[in-house]
Structure formats: structure tokens, C-alpha cells
């Protein structure tokens, strides 16, 4: 049986909840060992390794990012920004027994230092079925304003 939309949505909703609530160590476990978390700049980029991105994280970089956010040693993350995000507009692009591609929208609001920022994004997920259940093999966060000037983002989109 192909991976269902329901199972896929359950996983990425869990991810969103963990990120908003600072459960970063658990978040790391949602990815496959060679999974990637990518925030590209170029809206058309596909070959992320060859271009400059905002973030292009393999397992090692994801772990470092988490350590940094929780260390209390980064002034932009101490205290961390608070975020609330909503995912919606899910569409399964393709699905098999072993993997699926899912697209959806994310609206995120951030509060830090008394200032609110909004970030809308299209999310593209590649999910893979493993012995440990469904995992994230690729998450691409295509920010609506990726080609404009951002402000510092010391959290995980």
C-alpha cells in the first residue's frame, strides 16, 4: 500500500509541533541519516549542493544547529525566538510503498525582542519508509521572500 496522505501529514505536523515547542533533540530523530534540511535562496534551485542556500543541513549540521539553539551561547537565540506555525494546503505529489513527495503551505509567525515577523513558505517534503517508520529524507523550505532581504532567523523554519 502506498504511503497515505494521512500518515504523511501526521509526520510533518509532528515536526511542526516539535519545532514550535523547542523539542529539537526529538526533531533530529525525524530525519533519515542522510536526510537534508534546505532553505534555498533561488526559487528555482533544485541542485542545492551547487548553489548558495540560507541553510543546507546534513545530519551533522542539523545537530550543530540544535546544539547552538539550546546552548545559551548564542545571543540571538538566548532567549530563543518564539514561533507559531500552521501547515495547510497539503498535496501528495507522488507516493509509493517506500517513499512519497508532499507539498504544502506554511505560515509562521515569530516573536523576538518585541518584534513580530511573518514568513510564508511552500514546503516540499520527501518522506521515506524505514524500519523505524516514516522519516523525512528531504525538507525544502521555499520562503516567499527568499530573494528579498530577511532578518536574522535563529530558529528552524
Amino acid at each position: 500500500m502506498s504511503i497515505t496522505l494521512e500518515d504523511a501529514v501526521a509526520l510533518i505536523t509532528l515536526e511542526a509541533d516539535m519545532l514550535d515547542h523547542g523539542d529539537f533533540h526529538d526533531w533530529l530523530k525525524l530525519y533519515t541519516p542522510d536526510g537534508r534540511y534546505v532553505v534555498p535562496i533561488d526559487p528555482n534551485a533544485e541542485d542545492f549542493e551547487k548553489v548558495l542556500n540560507y541553510a543546507y543541513d546534513d545530519a551533522e549540521m542539523r545537530e550543530k544547529r540544535v546544539v547552538r539553539l539550546l546552548s545559551g551561547r548564542s545571543i540571538s537565540a538566548a532567549p530563543p525566538a518564539r514561533t507559531v506555525r500552521l501547515l495547510s494546503r497539503y498535496r501528495m505529489m507522488d507516493s509509493s510503498e517506500t517513499s512519497c513527495t508532499l507539498r504544502c503551505a506554511q505560515m509562521l509567525q515569530e516573536l523576538r525582542q518585541g518584534r513580530v515577523h511573518d514568513y510564508a513558505a511552500n514546503l516540499n517534503y520527501r518522506l521515506e519508509m524505514t524500519n523505524d517508520g516514516l522519516k523525512i529524507a528531504l525538507k525544502v523550505v521555499r520562503l516567499l521572500i527568499s530573494t528579498e532581504a530577511l532578518t536574522a532567523v535563529s530558529y528552524i523554519l
Binding site: V39, K50, V51, L52, N53, Y54, A55, Y56, M61, K64, R65, R68, S74, I75, S76, A77, L150, T151, A152, V153, S154
Partner: peptide, 22 residues
């Protein structure tokens, strides 16, 4: 070089956001 740039620089790097906060 691109990976090194992403590591420190920019709004999601490990260096620049702390500079910007300062």
C-alpha cells in the same frame, strides 16, 4: 566555499544572526 559561507554567514548562519543581535 559555499558550505563554509552558509555555516557562518547570512540570516540563518551560525555567526551573522549573533552579529545582527549585537
Amino acid at each position: 566555499r559555499l558550505r563554509l559561507h552558509e555555516h557562518f554567514q547570512g540570516p540563518m548562519g551560525f555567526g551573522t544572526p549573533d552579529d545582527a543581535e549585537a
